[in-house]
Structure formats: structure tokens, C-alpha cells
Design a binder for these strands. Sequence first.
DNA 1: CGCCCTTTGTTCAAACTTCAATAAGCGGTC
DNA 2: GACCGCTTATTGAAGTTTGAACAAAGGGCG
Lengths: 160, 160
Amino acid sequence: MNTWLTDEQQRVWRSYIEAATLLEDHLDRQLQRDAGMPHVYYGLLVALAESPGRRLRMTELARHAKITRSRLSHAVARLEGNGWVRREDCPSDKRGQFAVVTEEGLEVLERSAPGHVAAVRQALFDRLTPEQQKSLGEIMRIVAEGLQPGEAGADLPWLR
Amino acid sequence: MNTWLTDEQQRVWRSYIEAATLLEDHLDRQLQRDAGMPHVYYGLLVALAESPGRRLRMTELARHAKITRSRLSHAVARLEGNGWVRREDCPSDKRGQFAVVTEEGLEVLERSAPGHVAAVRQALFDRLTPEQQKSLGEIMRIVAEGLQPGEAGADLPWLR
DNA sequence: CGCCCTTTGTTCAAACTTCAATAAGCGGTC
DNA sequence: GACCGCTTATTGAAGTTTGAACAAAGGGCG
């Protein structure tokens, strides 16, 4: 288990960092301009809109978006202030809260989705061959799976 | 020019977001814990350490790290407070400032580099085949190039 | 030189994220 | 039913990022 990276791996890593940084910044600005919120917040609305009842428990939404519950609390507070999300108590668990996209929230989504998708296409998919797109999908699936919380010792299963 | 993504593209995009989010969070925590700074700050020290004279003009450093000058100003102020970076006036341009890694900064880097590299390997390279690594490099190079500032109309060159 | 436009780097306030601490409810066990 | 440990969600303070506004210096051109 070497402690260093090969030259080629270093180049790959640098490219990764650069692209990821530029892409996230690009989308943040695009959405801030056209939808009035950062990319993560937009993702929250999308997740809610796609869910049955247009609602999700806070913890589930956080898991879905890969963010902490704390961050989500703040984010939902902000979105609630915009009137794009509303909180509802969970009847079966008095600790629980649902986040629900409002009608207004859905409208914002509908208005801004085409522009956002266009930005994603233009920055990413339009520049890649179908093979590259497929490859990227596989790679990122693997990476995401490996970092899923609760997988801490996934590569040392004999210690569990 | 369709306005939507195919189902497969949507899956790729979701995987990308998840992996990128989890990876950045993972490295931020790893470095915050082991080096006392977020990933971006660490990248700044690395960039300086690799530069001739261990120094870079602010604007160059910002360009290198793909962040705004404003963000860099704050970051360098913080690193300066840690004693890891020092500012120096540019003799040939009185507006200019150099950021210089200090000896202390280099020590922090040396101490934390192995752990950081290990984290990157474990999260990314160890999980990918050589072909996937190569593919990822190509893909991210393309994406980064497409988003480089000053490329706004790069896909509409006839308008420039 | 004097003018104007650009570049450089910083600053401020507002927004966002993190982390640790907290309150409150769940659920099993004695 | 009282206790204990775990989960849920929020809070507050500290740290970081953003975007606009700014001062100061460069550099060309009349």
C-alpha cells in the first residue's frame, strides 16, 4: 500500500478538483441568479417535489441530499422564509417533522428547471461522448457508495 | 437541442452530485481533523509549496485554486493568522501581494500530506480500475476546460 | 502631464456551513 | 411506570463564502 500517488493519478486528481470546483461554482451562480437559491437548496426542492406527498422527513431529506441534519434545519428555515417549503408535524412520531414543498416552491422549480438543466447539459453532457457519460456514471456510483455513511469499515469487513 | 436529460443522464448526474458532495465533505473533515484547515486551504498551501520561491501572486493563486480573489483574501488572512502563510509586497507592482508559505506551513503540509493522500486513495483511486482512472481524468479535464473563466462563448466562437 | 479605463487586492455585510450542545420523544427493560 | 440509551430535530456561536463596493496603482493615449 504505497503512500503516494503516481504522476498520472496526481494529474487526474487535480483535474477532478478543478472540474468539481468550477462546476459547483458555475451551478451555484446560475441558480442564485435564476432561482434565488444555491444549488443544494434547489436539490432539496427537487427531492421534495419528487417524493410522494411532496414531503419528506427531515432526516430522510438530509440523507437523500447527503447533508447533515443541522445544515438541513438551517436550509429549510430559509426556504420556509421564502414560502417555498412548509413544515408539518409527523402524526406518528412527535419528534418528527415533514418538510413539504409549497405550491409556490413548485412554481419556482418549474420556472427554473429548464435553465438549470440547460446549464448542466452545456457544462457536462454536451461535452462528453455517450461512453464517457456511462463511464462517469459508473465511477461516481462506486465512489458515492464507498463514502456512504455507515460504510466506515467497508473495506475491512473482517474487523466488524 | 432537447431541454431535458435522458433517464440515464439523470442517474449519472445524481451519482455525480452525491459522490462529489460526499467526497468533498469527507476530505474537509479529514483535513480539518488532521491539519486544522478545510480542503481548499490545504490546496492553497500545496500550490504555494510547489511554486518557485514558494510564493504566488494573489491573483495567480486564486486562478490556480479556482476561487475568487475575495475568497482568497479571507483564506490567506486566516492562514496568516496561523503562521502558515506570510504576505510580501511585490516590488515591481505596488498593488501586488505575494502569498508565501512559511517554514511552519511547510511542516504542517509534510505532517498531514500522507494522511490526506491516503484518504484520497482510499476514497477514490483504490476503488477504480486503471481504465476508470484514466477515463475520469479525461472527463474532468474536458469539463474543467469548458468552464475555465474567459471561455464564456467558447462554443460559439463565431460570435466573438 | 492628465485623463480614462483596467487590474489588483481588500473590505464589509449578508448568507451559508460547521460543530457541539440541547430539548424532546421513542422504545425496550426491569 | 421509571429508567436508560438512542434518535429526531433545532439552536447558537464561530468559521467560511459571496457579491458588491472600494482604494490604489498600472498603463495607454492624447
